[in-house]
Design a binder for these strands. Structure first.
Lengths: 353, 353
DNA sequence: TTGAAAGCGCTAACAT
DNA sequence: ATGTTAGCGCTTTCAA
């Protein structure tokens, strides 16, 4: 009975509103945009009809016309685990605050995907891009392309060294300071033979954490013992393996600082298995403040990476870079991590921070 | 010296290419799109210049013209923790496979944000929307608006009951089957007094899991003991508290099934604290297969929610709903969860699945 | 206070 | 095989 339009699923447009109201589309457009020059009466009529017809403005058209999409692009290696979801969350929240939508892509740690995603974001006319590059990325030419289009770029966490200052911003964690803080803490707890489980040094994060470890020892006049540092890919199993090996030594360490929480957890499991007490016999500390660190027994001392703050900060920097007349080469931002002291390292009473 | 364009940051357009090549924009457009009708020679010239000038097609314009944005919208309560990032990951991967971009919004469990985000997605002209609604959402009128615009909608995990079959798809986990499987497993391990830590029953997930618990008992002729079920908001602390209370009882349970891994972990901590052995004295099982469940001691038996698969499946269903002539009212999809037996419940030798 | 008209960059008839 | 043209829905001069 009801006469259905044959092409019913076309959305209501400004033109439709204008026609039914008997006014020009420019007036309708202005009314909807809340321009002061339009009479209240007209605004009322327009808004009411828009409501009735479930009018939804077409952002695509508006963006095309305006030349701005109001969208930021995000490119991360993946959105699983603890760190990236948390950072992306910070990004989403802050972007929304600044009036931007967010388009998220993941490279799956693959350079080719990364290139594709980058093009995708450029084609989507994003006004700025936030990137943490894949760990297989060695050639960064594809980021130059972004630069050439004058799309502001902010790297976070994994930054491209040597690209700073070239229309590019960056936000990283001060890994050095984080490691320095944990190791200093361990020393304060009376530890003198502190082992270090480090990831491979060609990754700058690991290099910085290792340097923090070394400098903290030196500054506190604790001798650096080469054999106490083990390099390997840090995870639960390898952490356990390394710990077992370390326990073969003639002289045992009195603490282990792992550059990653999983490796620390693996080490703790071995220590307990062997009947060694944590922290009394050997103190343990990790890095990242993963969710599970409050679940281990004892709870794990670690360094918080301020993920949410990193996302926020990155967006703030990016948004400042967007206006045409803005500073395109902002200073790199380095966030101070937070030492989180828990039971795996607390030997003295009331050492809570 | 170098003469810089005053308005240098305008991106290269098809028109620019056409002008420099001395051909019409339609030829260029066709060449770039790889139409068969264009000569190879022309294609070559066009592609080369496009490369040289770093031409990037403007998706906004293409989408506007075509009337399709090639974008799917995703609306989740948040992208932190374990579950949602993992599902979103599945969504992103599958969407990309199907040639769609993804726009992700989070409601932060807030209905108002949810409404706003929904409008945002509609305005962005997404071709379909995947939603897991905020847990404060009771009125679902804002989803009707999506429906009215003929934008296909797929709910996942948190579904709107009663909206099914109305141009709406859904993908959920079979919580009932998951709970039924764990409890059956516990019974097979010889447990007869199985306690249940359940979340509030007004949430359907909890209701289903509880029912699975009850039915598994009944079907295996194990008596249902009312006092063994505790209702509370499940987390680490409350799990510990509930466990302590339970240990006051005259007759102890011989197993605990918590509808959430954190509560199970809390319970395990208390058990160990009291010198009770897991699983020999009291077996423990959780639900969700959180990352940390392989880190607890003993490792925690749990139910995997197939997060990635849920994301994939949801996208597949959504994509099928997009064509004009498609079935707009697909059958709800119910995913079978996977029981993961670990040491916290393994009493018999070789019970690995 | 309102309207007419141009055009953002692209695609797709419809020519030729 | 290539060109001409109209128009997607919107914003924004310019004119009235």
């Amino acid at each position: 009975m009801a006469k259905q339009n044959p092409k019913a699923n076309r959305r209501t447009s400004i033109t439709d509103l204008a026609r039914t109201l008997g006014m020009s589309i420019s007036t309708v457009s202005r009314a909807l945009a809340g321009h002061a020059e339009v009479s209240e009466a007209t605004k009322q009529r327009v808004r009411q009809l828009a409501e009735e017809l479930h009018y939804q403005p077409n952002q695509l058209a508006a963006a095309l016309r305006r030349g701005r999409s109001n969208t930021l692009g995000v490119l991360v290696p993946h959105i699983t685990g603890h760190f990236f979801p948390e950072v992306v969350n910070g990004i989403a929240v802050e972007a929304s605050k600044a009036g931007y939508n967010v388009m998220i892509c993941q490279s799956n740690e693959d350079v080719e995907q990364e290139k594709k995603n980058l093009e995708l974001l450029m084609n989507a006319q994003v006004e700025g891009i936030l990137v943490s590059h894949a760990n297989t990325t060695l050639d960064f030419a594809h980021f130059d392309a972004v630069n050439k289009l004058d799309i502001p770029l902010v790297f976070f966490d994994r930054v491209v060294e040597g690209m700073q200052g070239h229309h590019v911003g960056s936000v990283v964690l001060d890994d050095y300071a984080g490691a320095y803080a944990v190791v200093s803490h361990l020393i304060e707890q009376g530890c003198r033979r502190i082992a270090h489980f480090s990831g491979p040094l060609h990754v700058n994060i690991n290099r910085n954490r290792h340097q923090g470890y070394l400098d903290a020892l030196t500054d506190h006049h604790v001798p650096v013992i080469e054999d106490l540092t083990c390099f390997f890919d840090l995870n639960l199993e390898t952490g356990a393996v390394a710990m077992r090996e370390l326990l073969q030594s003639a002289e045992l360490p009195d603490a282990v600082f792992a550059s990653n929480d999983l490796a620390a957890a693996g080490a703790m499991q071995v220590l307990k298995e062997r009947g060694l007490r944590v922290p009394q016999d050997i103190a343990v500390a990790g890095f990242s403040n993963e969710t599970f660190t409050i679940l281990t027994e004892p709870t794990l001392t670690t360094v918080d990476q301020c993920c949410h703050e990193m996302g926020q900060t990155a967006v703030q920097q990016l948004v400042r870079m967007i206006p045409d007349d803005s500073d395109k080469t902002p200073d790199p931002i380095v966030l101070k991590p937070r030492l989180i002291v828990r039971n795996s390292s607390r030997r003295l009473p009331d050492e809570a921070q």
